[in-house]
């Protein structure tokens, strides 16, 4: 039901460490925000787009993934032509395009497990300070993916319960019952986690 946006492949980006790729986005992003040069932004946008579209993703899928973001960028760009100046609008639009294409390329070339490893590593300082335990993040993420389908099942169940009693089903009115159905398992799940000694170490 929930498929990762990772795309199988063996490109240069696939082979880089996730931490390096995230740092790349950060550095490029910061660099582009300190300059107002149209040429720099244009070159960056073209290179980022070239990287993204050269990945082994079918072109339509590649566009489809970014459609909502590209749409927002386009609308804001058009508004800014009128509010600011065509030059300024173009600079900010190209900058956003560059960062977004680059980010999408990193997402498509990094596995969830590799991201998680990097996150666990990045959380080490916070763990030493006692703010958060890296293992808990993995646990929480696993729990979400484990119980998502159960919540959809609860939702379908509520729908059928309404139908069986001849009551019109309003999705948003079912929110309260859906949330209660989901959260009332929390005690039992927490007990089970403790019983298995999962947070022991």
């Amino acid at each position: 039901m929930l498929t990762s946006l990772y795309v199988e492949g063996d490109t240069f980006l696939h082979r880089q460490r996730p931490g390096a790729k995230l740092a790349l986005i950060l550095v490029v992003g910061l660099a582009l925000y300190v300059t107002e040069s149209l040429t720099v932004q244009a070159v960056a946008a073209v290179i980022a787009a070239a990287i993204y579209f050269s990945l082994p993703i079918p072109f339509r899928e590649a566009i489809y993934r970014l459609k909502p973001v590209l749409f927002t960028i386009a609308v804001l760009g058009l508004i800014n032509i009128w509010l600011l100046s065509p030059h300024e609008a173009l600079v900010s639009t190209l900058r956003l395009l560059a960062v977004v294409f680059l980010a999408a390329a990193v997402t498509a070339t990094t596995r969830i497990a590799d991201f998680m490893e990097t996150i666990t590593w990045a959380l080490q300082p916070a763990e030493k300070l006692g703010i958060v335990r890296a293992a808990d993040v993995g646990l929480a993420l696993g729990l979400v993916l484990r119980f998502l389908p159960d919540i959809f099942a609860h939702y379908e169940g509520l729908k059928h319960a309404h139908a069986a009693r001849g009551i019109a089903f309003r999705p948003l009115r079912a929110l309260g019952p859906l949330i209660i159905l989901t959260l009332k398992d929390a005690d039992a799940i927490a007990d089970a986690i403790d019983a298995r000694g999962i947070r022991g170490r």
Partner: peptide, 16 residues
């Protein structure tokens, strides 16, 4: 906890 294991009434809540 490592000596005694518990299998709950509803195992669906136990597999996390």
């Amino acid at each position: 906890l490592s000596v005694a294991g518990f299998i709950f009434q509803n195992p669906a809540q136990q597999l996390i």
